[in-house]
Design a binder for these strands. Sequence first.
DNA 1: ATGAATGCAAAAACTTTGCATGACG
DNA 2: CGTCATGCAAAGTTTTTGCATTCAT
Lengths: 134, 134
Amino acid sequence: MDNLDLRKAGLKVTLPRVKILQQLETAVERHMSAEDIYKALMESGEDVGLATVYRVLTQFEQAGIVMRHNFEGGSAVFELADEGHHDHMVCLDTGTVLEFLDPEIERRQKIIAEEHGYDLVEHSLVLYVRPKKQ
Amino acid sequence: MDNLDLRKAGLKVTLPRVKILQQLETAVERHMSAEDIYKALMESGEDVGLATVYRVLTQFEQAGIVMRHNFEGGSAVFELADEGHHDHMVCLDTGTVLEFLDPEIERRQKIIAEEHGYDLVEHSLVLYVRPKKQ
DNA sequence: ATGAATGCAAAAACTTTGCATGACG
DNA sequence: CGTCATGCAAAGTTTTTGCATTCAT
């Protein structure tokens, strides 16, 4: 995921775009809101406008470089689309986001859509969880 | 789902609350946004404020009378919580919302959460589909 | 009568857009 | 150099909140 990917997407290699990409690559938390990225860049001394972060993330999404998710709670979160498809598990206590993929669930989804006369285009599955009690 | 349910939830039986409940019960489309409900009431000659619709829906949600869903696209949709749990299938062409329940998917979700050391609290599964081609 | 609920308008939260300036190729 | 991208501020959307008034019990 580097400057070449930007060019391939027809996007000029500008400082804000490179910095946002780097942020998503190096951040501890893979899943960040526009605001998260904006703040992180500000703290690193990078001077990027919030509007630019939103614009760039939207372009990245269209180019298939990032994925946008609407978990519960105000804002959308973005993650690098460098892995294959997966679903998410969000801890209600800590906000931690875990990724998982279950072939059986994937399979059933496709079957269910077809049983109803549809083709499955995409899906959104989020498990909201809490640390196991004992 | 009647006035008794409101009382049981500790909510006074007011005209706006009754009308909103009726709207959700009688509307053709079970899944409505606050704006949808507001407009429908206006067209029926009921004079309810949009803020009240939001307030009442939030109270209904807390009381377990309705469920709130965040499908793609701006606004949240609400449905009466008079059936058991189910997931949703949204047609990208028509906006139609279908409900389904797959015991196997439900089972797998719980297992996956536990395998990661969590208890499953709730989940959100939405299939985005299109009418089958042939 | 009194506490809760409503309507309105204002604000809040998140995201997008218009436009003049600046940077990339 | 021309064009695309940026920053800022303003506007758009959806939802929430403050407050005076009205309503339910």
